[in-house]
Every structure is written in structure tokens, then in C-alpha cells.
Design a protein around this nucleic acid. Structure first.
Lengths: 246, 246
DNA sequence: CGATCCTTTGAGCGAACTCAACTCGGGTGG
DNA sequence: CCACCCGAGTTGAGTTCGCTCAAAGGATCG
């Protein structure tokens, strides 16, 4: 079903809006790209870089992050297949943060030139990509709220909830189970908590039966209960309500 | 100098990139708009609304925020003249947060239709506006870092620093002094701190001579020192280095 | 000249942090 | 094949930063 690695991207551009025309889809599928395998914990671009291409996640998970002066890091977002985590580099020449892999990845690299040409010949696609970056911003807003306003327990539940819903939207969940190969240290960096406190809070979430998480796989026995604990309102993801899986 | 209320917006669209053509400027200045006076603490749009127009701040300050179930609120960003705080509503039909005034405002309201027509006849302007929304997102990323990784002292210093630099970029500072009619409660909502703790931390910042802030006016005697305390790196604002005032 | 909002102060409490050690599983090299 | 190592997870104990509750001073404005 996903013979072309960009099919998942096309699907994404159609979420909660009208379908693309065949000409638009074809233009995307004809984009010149380089497929690349990247190991875990590798940087794709770094803060200060001036990229000349954008990256589409084909397989694996990525995150964006900022390094702090004291050696800590703040994870800003997680990325799943279909995402274009550095789309912004098309118009913001210098990276203000880094993008790296969390797991081994397959990525598709598309030059800025090719993307500019794409939106020149298919101007309506510009709005689709623009919209993607607006959803990106909406997720950042929710993360501000998450770290600013929720306690550790809800904060972690929220991150897990979002990860699940986004994975489901691209057909990468099997019922209530999904890959979650994130370390507790990474969760700590994403939530602004210490690893010790993440550990204890996750144990509580587990003990309350909200998640079953072992060896990189996570199951959510009762999504409604997890959402409630997380104060999770999916409106900020701007998906079609119900966002059916594959 | 700013006879047309959108002149400041034009100036913004040119920051750290090439100048607009005369035709582009004219197209913007000819946008049909409604000028409106809005009192302090009024909502312009609310979470759940489906706006049909965008708002340009002409005079006064605004903020975007989310209300929480427990009655608290998280402020997501501050906005100064020249900003278009709900530009996203052009492509995300439903608001996932609210936009309100902090002070009395003069705003320019421009219909989505007019904006769509503008970028249809001047496609290059689409990229300028798109870029604005990418900078918006960059600021959100920095705010995640701020609430996630900095202690109260640095966090508050950072918010003040950003406010100053952004005001300076639109020519609204006089030397090291600027309007700062923000209440400590609002700062608390923006930083995820309690008002009591904001108060004590601000007093420390004052005591260390980093700011002089009274009756809505703030002076920064030593910007370098404040930046250092805030761990403020202006790269995320994607302004021209040095961002000269008017 | 109250009324109200904002700021400030005190005191006690609690969520989350730091430091440190121990476990466990998987990988790797002798 | 086993010893070792390393990263991830877990646990304990003590500390601290920031919170809550409560109340008292300013400022601003009909």
C-alpha cells in the first residue's frame, strides 16, 4: 500500500481537508528524493545548520530538541512516519534547534529547490504544506501547556496519548498497541522532568492500569481513561474527528 | 511614518529577508480592512471559534492562551504591533486556543477572502506570511524550552528579554525603555509559575539591577547582563542580527 | 473615597529534584 | 562461553524550589 515512501505524506496532507487532485499527487510522487538509512541517536540537522533539503520520515521515530548551556536538552516534539520535521528550513534559513533520530530510521530527503518548484507548479500544494507547519505550531502550543500547566503524571500521560493518536492517524497502531521505543530519559527531556521522577510517575500510570509498556511496546487498555488522566483534547491536532486507523 | 496601519506589518514581512516589491506593498496596503478599538482583557477570538478574518495588531498588546479544566490558564505568546496573531485561522478552521487583549488595542481586521485573494495575485507574498507563521512556531519552541528547562528567575528574565527585543524590532522602544503593562498574574500564566513566586523572583531580578520596572514602564540598564541571566539567544526570532530600532 | 485590582509579605507544605546505589538485560571481546 | 560492560530502569533518602493559603499594603479609577 505504501509502495512510494511519500504516500504516507500525501495521506497526511489530506487529513481534515479536501483530497488532493491526481495531478497534485503525481507531482509529489515524482519529487526527486534520496532514500537514506540512519542509525539511532543520529542528528539529521543541527542547530546553526543551513539545510538545503527537507527530510520526510519514512520509517522510525525522530525528535527535535535544543541543547542547553548546562548540558541538558529539551525535546520539542516527536516525529512519526509521514512527518516532515524540518519543513520550516524551506523558509527559515538557519536551524534554531536540532533534529535527530530516536531509533534507526529510513528517511526521504528532498531538496529545497525541488520543493520550491513543486509549489510553483502546484500553488495549491503550498497551502497544504503551510497547513502542516501550522499544525506543527499547534502541537508546540499544546506542549507549552503541557509543561507549563500539568503535573508530572498528567504530563507523561499526555505525551503518550498524543504519540498514540498520531501513530493511529498514519495507520501504525494495531488496536490499542503501538511501538514506543522511547527511553525514560527521553521522556524526561520532553517533559522537563528528572528521569527519577519520570520513572516513579510512569510506575503510577502503570499501576493505575492506564498503560502496559514493556520492551518498547505500549498498550492502552482504556483510552478514555488515559485521555482523562492526561486532560487530552485532540482538537489541537486538527485531524478529522475519529481519525480512523488504516 | 506609519500612516497606514499595515505599514508595520510590511516592515515585519521584510525582516531578515529581501524587500517587498512595490506591487506587493501596494497590494497589502490596498487590503480591505476594518479598524476597530478593543478594550483591555477582551477576547478577539475564542477556542472553538471558526474565524472568517485575521487580526493585525496596530496598537496595544495581546496574548494567546488556553483555558484549563481547573480554571487556570496558560498564556502561549505575547503579541505586539505588527503581529498577526491568528494568521493560522486562514488554514486551520477551528481555533485551538483563544486570542485576547492585554491592554486597550487598535486592531485591523482583514477577511480570509481578502487574504486568499492577496496571495493568489501575489504568490510570493504567501511565502512571506508562511514564514511569519514559521517564526511564530520558533517562538513556541523557545517557550517550551523556557517553561521546561529554566528556573523561575531565568524564565522571567527570558520573557522580558524577548518582549524587549521584539518591541525594539518594530521601533517601539526608546533606548532601553519600553511599555510593559503586563501584570504579574499574566507573567505567572505565561511562565507556569504562581503569582507569589513570580513576585519574589521579579524582586530578585530588580534587586540585581537587571530591570527597572514600575507603573507599566520597564528599563533594561544592562541588556547583556539580562540576556545572560535569561540564557537568551535571539537566533530563534530569526531577525536580522542587531535588529536596529526605528 | 470606596471599590477593586495588583503587589507584597509570612508561614507551612509538597511536588519534584539531586545524589547515590543497585538491578537487569543485551552486547562484546577475551 | 563466560566475564565484563554499558545503558536503561528502579529504589531510597534527603533537599529545595516553587506552591498554597492568608492577609496586608499600594495604586488607580469611577
Amino acid at each position: 500500500m505504501f509502495e512510494n515512501p511519500l504516500n504516507r505524506l500525501i495521506r497526511r496532507l489530506e487529513v481534515d481537508t479536501t483530497a488532493l487532485s491526481q495531478a497534485e499527487k503525481d507531482a509529489i510522487l515524482r519529487l526527486p528524493m534520496t532514500i537514506k538509512e540512519v542509525g539511532a541517536d543520529q542528528d539529521i540537522v543541527r542547530e546553526g545548520d543551513r539545510p538545503t533539503q527537507c527530510c520526510v520520515v519514512v520509517e522510525g521515530f525522530q525528535c527535535r530538541y535544543k541543547m542547553l548551556l548546562d548540558g541538558g536538552r529539551q525535546i520539542l516534539s516527536f516525529h512519526v512516519p509521514g512527518d516532515m520535521p524540518d519543513l520550516q528550513s524551506l523558509f527559515l534559513s538557519t536551524m534554531d534547534h536540532s533534529l535527530g533520530t530516536l531509533t534507526p530510521n529510513r528517511v526521504a530527503l528532498i531538496s529545497h529547490d525541488a520543493l520550491r518548484e513543486l509549489i510553483r507548479v502546484q500553488p495549491a500544494l503550498a497551502e497544504r504544506f503551510w497547513r502542516e507547519s501550522l499544525i506543527d505550531a499547534a502541537i508546540f502550543r499544546e506542549w507549552i501547556t503541557n509543561v507549563g500547566s500539568r503535573d508530572a503524571y498528567a504530563r507523561l500521560a499526555h505525551v503518550i496519548c498524543e504519540f498514540y493518536v498520531r501513530l493511529r492517524a498514519v495507520g501504525l497502531t494495531k488496536d490499542a498497541t503501538f511501538d514506543f521505543p522511547i527511553t525514560q530519559t527521553e521522556l524526561a527531556d520532553a517533559t522537563g522532568l528528572s528521569t527519577v521522577h519520570v520513572n516513579r510517575s510512569i510506575q503510577q500510570i502503570r499501576a493505575n492500569g492506564l498503560i502496559i509498556w514493556e520492551r518498547g511496546a505500549c498498550t492502552i487498555p482504556n483510552l478514555a481513561a488515559l485521555k482523562e488522566a492526561a486532560m487530552f483534547e485532540p482538537n489541537y491536532l486538527h485531524m478529522r474527528e475519529g481519525n480512523a486507523a488504516a
